[in-house]
């Protein structure tokens, strides 16, 4: 019967849609399995975080090890307080680890790069990273350059 053909093709249509969904989830977005694993939080103060966003990457030696989960401002000191979420259990980063705001490529997205230290002690959940270096803002650099030239 004709209705049967219709039902079969609708079945195939829905199946095709679901396969497409599976493809997009698995192959294209490559589901981040690590997300469900254990994480811990660190905080860091920067003098300038221009361009940094929530969900920006946190990486060490070019490998992503976490992400930014919150950006707040401390108006008293004029500093930004950034909360980082690091994958894995606490104990992998030394207490004197440094944090730097970097840029992917010339004009790419901002991310935080962590620089390993040499301390014996390790950072625990909720600790603060002391050694920080804020974003290099192009306008400031140009401004400095111009005023140096004027001297």
């Amino acid at each position: 019967m004709r209705m049967r053909t219709i039902e079969i093709s609708v079945g195939a249509f829905v199946l095709a849609g679901m396969l497409a969904a599976v493809f997009l989830v698995v192959q294209v977005s490559g589901i981040n399995v690590s997300q469900s694993e254990q994480t811990y939080k660190l905080s860091a103060r920067f003098d300038d975080v221009a361009g940094l966003r929530i969900r920006s990457k946190v990486s060490m030696a070019g490998v992503t090890i976490g992400r930014v989960t919150d950006i707040a401002v401390d108006t008293e000191f004029g500093e930004a307080i950034v909360t980082l979420e690091i994958d894995g259990a606490p104990g992998g980063l030394t207490a004197d680890t440094g944090a730097k705001i970097l840029t992917e490529g010339m004009l790419g997205a901002r991310y935080i790069g962590l620089i390993p230290g040499a301390d014996e002690e390790m950072l625990a959940d909720g600790d603060e990273i002391i050694e920080t270096q804020g974003a290099i803002v192009l306008e400031n650099l140009i401004g400095q350059f111009l005023s140096n030239m004027g001297k």
């Binding site: 192959q27 294209v28 977005s29 589901i31 981040n32």
Partner: peptide, 15 residues
């Protein structure tokens, strides 16, 4: 091609 895509594409945010 694929790894760049998989690193950047977020399941919820994009798809």
């Amino acid at each position: 091609f694929w790894s760049g895509m998989q690193n950047a594409v977020e399941l919820w945010d994009d798809l």
